[in-house]
Write a protein that binds this DNA or RNA. Sequence first.
DNA 1: ATGTAATGTGGAATCGATTTCATATTATGA
DNA 2: TCATAATATGAAATCGATTCCACATTACAT
Lengths: 344, 344
Amino acid sequence: MGMNINEIAKLAGVSRATVSRYLNQGYVSSEKKERIRQVIEKTGYRPLSSAQTLRSKKTNFIGVIIPKINSDSIGRMVSGISSVLSRAGYQILLACTENDEGQELKFLTLFKENHVDGIILLGTIFTAEHKKALKNLAVPVVILSQYLNGYSCVYYDDYHAARNLAEYLAKTGKQFGYLGVTQRDQAVGQERLRGVKDGLLFGNRLLAQENIRECRFVMESGYEQARELMEASPDVDTIICATDTIAAGALQYLKAAGKKVPGEVQIAGIGDSSLSRVTEPALTTVHLYFEEAGTQAAQLLVELIQKGADAVRKEVKLDSRLIIQKSTRPGEEKGEDTDESNVH
Amino acid sequence: MGMNINEIAKLAGVSRATVSRYLNQGYVSSEKKERIRQVIEKTGYRPLSSAQTLRSKKTNFIGVIIPKINSDSIGRMVSGISSVLSRAGYQILLACTENDEGQELKFLTLFKENHVDGIILLGTIFTAEHKKALKNLAVPVVILSQYLNGYSCVYYDDYHAARNLAEYLAKTGKQFGYLGVTQRDQAVGQERLRGVKDGLLFGNRLLAQENIRECRFVMESGYEQARELMEASPDVDTIICATDTIAAGALQYLKAAGKKVPGEVQIAGIGDSSLSRVTEPALTTVHLYFEEAGTQAAQLLVELIQKGADAVRKEVKLDSRLIIQKSTRPGEEKGEDTDESNVH
DNA sequence: ATGTAATGTGGAATCGATTTCATATTATGA
DNA sequence: TCATAATATGAAATCGATTCCACATTACAT
């Protein structure tokens, strides 16, 4: 209980400075090292972290801000982050914003000058206020899954992920629909839409403006927007979705509406979530290296903390891999409806 | 930057004690209150939490220990916890153990006397070491989703959840298989198995020992164990699963093996995860009030912190609700394959 | 009016560590 | 051998808040 560094020092017959050095790998003779070790072991003493932090300004916490908790992709990223950070001696402080921008700002300012040695921001939307908050940050930050100019970030090649998928589908589809997300989300909103448009164009197909719908990041929204899309444009035979979750919802609608998938309508998502393996038929999708992204972001942040915020600045863009499954029609090539085929 | 309570006091022309009282709703005249308010607003001063914690021993953090992050049910519980705690002025420190008992102990001892004002342990398995670690805790703890004698806990009526499901299926099944989890997990392992056994017995059915299989909490494991089960006992026509995730994996196997579901084999899970709505056919399952459990656990913990650890001690057991969908055969009653029917 | 309770304030002690400084001892190298 | 570097140690200052104590003022009840 009332154990503090003074008690330990007294019991070990040394000054408290020496105990502190023992705890922080400073110069201590092996004789005193042993004496201190024994006393600490006997008493079960653990230094009080608030006192350490007050003096040293190091918290050994890393703030990780995520938009929601029950997500496959986020789970994998956090898993990657976690493995690196725990090895590096950091504790994760996970803050979940539930897709609320205000919360995101709240956490950024909460972490400001306090609480954490660094931040990994698994961002969604960047407003001017976000940038201001980031600018005012006193600790290094790595942005994960979005590109933001001037910041260290680890992100996906959303454009080519979407484009490769669209190019592939352009071969077997005639009339296209797209279920995307808000354009305020640069990665998932803008980049993926741009990739889909270019990919279809490259395959001499057009994505009509009225066939582009905006969803929230939940299945129900995919269901609803698929319904509106198909009711407005019944001739659509290919639906591309910005995420697997949206695709799963849309697929549910298609089946409820009695459409044959992929016969009458084919559908695909992006993300290679475990959902995409469960639906019937399994979803054609694009694998993104979520766990890898997490580890890279964490490593980058640790470097940033150790070497100083502006000594290192990196932008890591990660590849993707097309996963062809049963929810889309086989093309003319050989072997293309195997579970895995690398189109990149 | 270099703003601290002394600077604020000087600028406002008061003592730092008064500034502290201002920050902690002590006696301050409205005149000085206003002066301090203005200075704080102008400077953007925020008290350093490590200094506050060192002196007051309050961290305003609550440690929430969870077994894994990308889980539907856990996501909902955390969401419930989060809404209550943030309203009460607490910050969540989410620690994810990735289903590793060692990690669970590590976090418990990490939180010991340090870091947090209270703990919510979303537990899985309780060893003697766990109990020792819990006993040594200096802060109140609420155990969520498991019952543990002598501790405040919020948990599910796993027995009746499983039993109701089994009683329902006993009407339409002949040969039963059960895909459970380790018996070391009291709630999901022991209680659900016991409920299933009793429910079947009540319906004059038997669960043969060799038709009971143990899975891990992932789809792949459900797939694999379903395969082994069906290969060993091809006459099984009803598979009950301890979780929806396991059921989803098992369902995948059944379809891959060409079994008609629910015609030849019917299957059901527990948890009412979003997965259960996506599979084809949708899974009959049991709804558990995850979010409600989260809010109750958080409220209980806040009470515990405010009123003292042993002033309040509560055990909250939560109800369940059978959700009948298409993965099981309709019984003789009327209207029983609607989406929602309350059997309790 | 006068003792008691509530309100208001500043000085100083305190929380438990790290870090600077001064200083002593031992090792190293030319 | 002697200057210099590396190792080793303790006293004291410090981090930035809260809280105890002493004391002053105001309000209230009798």
